[in-house]
Amino acid sequence: MNGLFANEDGRFAPRLSLRLRFGRLFQLLSLAAVTLGLIVLSVLILDIILNGYKWLRPEFFTEFPSRFPEKSGLRSALQGSLWMISLTALMAFPIGVGAAIYLEEYAPDNGLTRFIEINIANLAGVPSIIYGLLGLGLFVRGLELGRSVLAGSMTMALLVLPILIVSGREAIRAVPQSVRQASLALGATQWQTIQNHVLPYAMPGILTGTILAISRAIGETAPLITIGALTYIRFDLKGPLDLFTVLPIQIFNWVSLPKAEFQQLAAAGIIVLLGVLFSLNALAIVLRNKLQIRW
């Protein structure tokens, strides 16, 4: 094809229309990929909502689980999940941020540090059931915490720590070096620099990472089953050493029961779980937008 412009003398073969067509082709393929994902997801959610919405009545939140579907609720599971999230966050956040600060700001760049860094990254990929086994040995039996919500939360804290440390480091690394230098050049100590500049600017990123890590903890079942969280609890959770259950375990329990109504209860439980998850994600986005500093 000859170009519109006079200096085309045949030394180039632009094949413009072919190149443009290829571009459009890949644009369409990408669109198809997105659409497929969205369709599968909406079908799933739609199915669950249709199954479970009529069970989302006040008693569902205030009743303990029961042999009778109409008297069943997820009061204890919701309590367990909320306790667990709070305890996990309380334990994992300071340790995770502290470790991230140490690794980014203080640790010397030597073999040991790199070894630790690689292992933390690897830990983030370890199957969660391994953490369950660790929690069972270390907290339930070793520290004799029993099958308590505290032991569960500690296990969960271990599980999310690597994720938290990795995301915390990313956030701290994203703070421009120039800000650190500006502070140090004014005669600030390293801690003053971290406290006044690095942490405030890394905080949105750290919080986002934390919430995403916590969201993962809410959905986890395997480690809790391993340490022996109960499935059938008909009393309020009063302290960290009490026995507990959580939403995913309750849902799993309902799914395994033969009655059709329990399947629908499970669907309703999933709606609640998704609701909690989405709220946490929304919170992460809001926090990020609110605290974000534009450089």
Binding site: S178, V179, Q181, A182, A185, L186, G187, A188, H197, W295
Partner: peptide, 18 residues
């Protein structure tokens, strides 16, 4: 830390704190 209070520095790219 003490040196830097007495000998200040201005950098290549303006880097005010946000």
């Amino acid at each position: 830390v003490e040196v830097r209070r007495h000998i200040g520095m201005v950098f290549q790219k303006p880097n005010p704190f946000p």
